[in-house]
Amino acid sequence: MDNPPSVDDLRGAVANALPVTRPSAGRRQLLRLWLPYLCLVPAIIASCGVLLYPTLRMFQYSFLNWSFGKSYATAEWDGLANYQWLITSQSSTLFHSLRLTLLYAGASIVCELVLGLAIAVLLNRRYVFGRQVVLTGFMIPTLLMPVMVGMMWRMYMYPNGMLSYFLGLVGIRIDWYTATWAMPAVILIEIWQFTPFFIISLFAGLRAISAEILEAAAIDGASGWYRFWHISMPYLRPIIVVTSMIRVLWILKSFDIVYTMFTGGPGSATEILGISIYRALFLSRNIGRSAALSVILAALTLLVTFAFVRFAYRSREVMESATS
């Protein structure tokens, strides 16, 4: 009985049966080199259409003198006039808005992070009654629409609102609607709504740390603080960086809560960049200036994202070098 044909025999037979259309080695190499890019072409075209085109248009609009409500045909090329106005004009609120935006973002995120971390650590203790219920409950503010949140807190913070009333009972009087307290008020609302985002993320991070490592450190005599700072924190650092970055991106573009609460006021006490962009477009009807402000906001966002990514990479390198 003959031996059955081997795989190589079969391959050879098939190759011989097929017409000789195999590309040359050079063409094969070329195909191998370009095929991945060819496959990416549809995605690149779609991305350009959806992401790049509107961004470039916004960039183009920032150089135009064009009134909202008039056709594009009436728009005139204005060079850098919009940027120049934003930087030099006495009426421009750019630097004021930038300062407020950074204050708003910085104060909110630091408080959210510290509070979120503290609560996550508490929830991560071995015995916590109703942990899942508490975690689910914490998610509720994050799920609410910011406009709704703004309206709700606007009523609470009324001079005769619920929050003012309860604070009054313990002898604290805060006039949230005044210029002094308006910014702290919106920061407080941000903290209320988005601290749970940090809690959930950091809690997940803490749960991922191997219990054995922590137990081993405890046996070696490491204190609770030492274990938290030198074991848990390095593990949490990438999560902190990513969650903070996401929050910064959200908050830099923030608009709804501040608009619903104070429309940028009283005076200009809460005129963050989002409000300035809105005012430039819908109240001053200046598409060019509004686009220029948006470009500045986009640049700021990119800068912050870059800084975070760089920090994240550095943290990873430090961690890798420490463990190796």
Binding site: P159, D175, W176, Y177, T178, A179, G265, P266, G267
Partner: peptide, 8 residues
């Protein structure tokens, strides 16, 4: 009333 500059 405190907060008039915020009132609509």
């Amino acid at each position: 009333v405190p907060g008039i500059a915020s009132f609509d």
